[in-house]
Amino acid sequence: MAEIEIDPLEPGPLTPVEAAALEALYASAFPEEDLFPLVRRLHAEVPGLVSLRAMAGETLAGHVIFTPCTIEDLPADHRPNPKTDADAPAQATSAALLGPLCVAPEHQRQGIGSALIRAGHEKLRSLEVAHVLVLGDPAYYSRHGFAAGADVEPPSPLPEHWRQAWQWLTLDPSLPAPHGSLTVPETWRDPALWTE
């Protein structure tokens, strides 16, 4: 197996070479889903995107995106009393939404997805991002420290049987578990991205 190197993709619209490689990667890994248009839009529309690729020699082996978001919440010691302080101001906590995460079929089960997630978390810590949320397989993401049943409302209602797939991880262990509602860039506000 070629040594894997993880490096960032530059912010902004994808170059034609990057777009072609990513489109082929996502088509091979997710033949029944068309995730590449989302990847292209995130790159074109979202400032501050953390986009990492895993290269096996000259071959694109994997890719992950972390979208900058905020959690609109209240301090843990000041939950509002609707009778006395319904207008208490919310606080915004920095967060990131993980996804999509993609590994080429011939490179799966080799730790590439894990390496991409770890590299993303390291980059997010350097940016002082507090929490990461993901909608994905609990069996997989629990191995990376994610906990099911996030007390953060997603941008669109989830099917009930997906609730355990909505997971969170705190990058700063001194912080309490996040609660509130996730505010995402416009690209992620399409309800079709949050349902079957």
Score class of each variant (00 low, 15 high):
L35E: 07
I4M: 11
R53W: 02
V103F: 03
E196Q: 08
L52V: 06
A95E: 01
D151E: 15
S181L: 09
P89K: 15
P31Q: 08
A2L: 11
N81L: 08
P16G: 13
S94G: 06
H107M: 11
P37T: 10
P157L: 06
T195D: 14
E122W: 08
H131F: 12
Y141V: 02
C102H: 01
V134Q: 00
E32Q: 08
L42N: 00
K123Q: 13
T84L: 09
L193H: 02
L35M: 11
A56Y: 03
V129Q: 01
P155I: 02
A21F: 02
P8A: 13
A56D: 10
L38N: 04
D85Q: 15
V64N: 00
G57W: 04
A104E: 12
E106Y: 04
R125T: 12
P173T: 08
P47M: 04
R53I: 12
P159A: 10
H78G: 08
L9F: 15
R40I: 04
G12I: 09
A150M: 04
A44N: 05
A104F: 04
T195R: 13
A29W: 06
S142F: 03
H179D: 03
R109L: 09
S174Y: 05
H131Y: 14
L175R: 15
L42D: 00
L193V: 03
Y141A: 01
E160K: 08
F30M: 05
L74A: 06
P16W: 06
I4H: 04
R163Y: 10
Y26V: 09
L60H: 12
V184I: 02
A56I: 10
V17N: 14
A20V: 14
D34M: 10
R109K: 13
E18I: 09
V152P: 00
L133C: 10
P176V: 07
L127S: 13
P47A: 08
A86E: 05
A24R: 15
T187H: 05
S28W: 07
S114R: 12
H63K: 09
F66Y: 13
L158A: 11
A24S: 15
P159M: 11
W168I: 03
G113P: 02
H107V: 06
P8Y: 12
G111E: 04
D87H: 14
G111C: 06
A61H: 00
I71L: 02
P31N: 10
P11W: 07
G120A: 10
P159L: 10
G149S: 11
S28E: 15
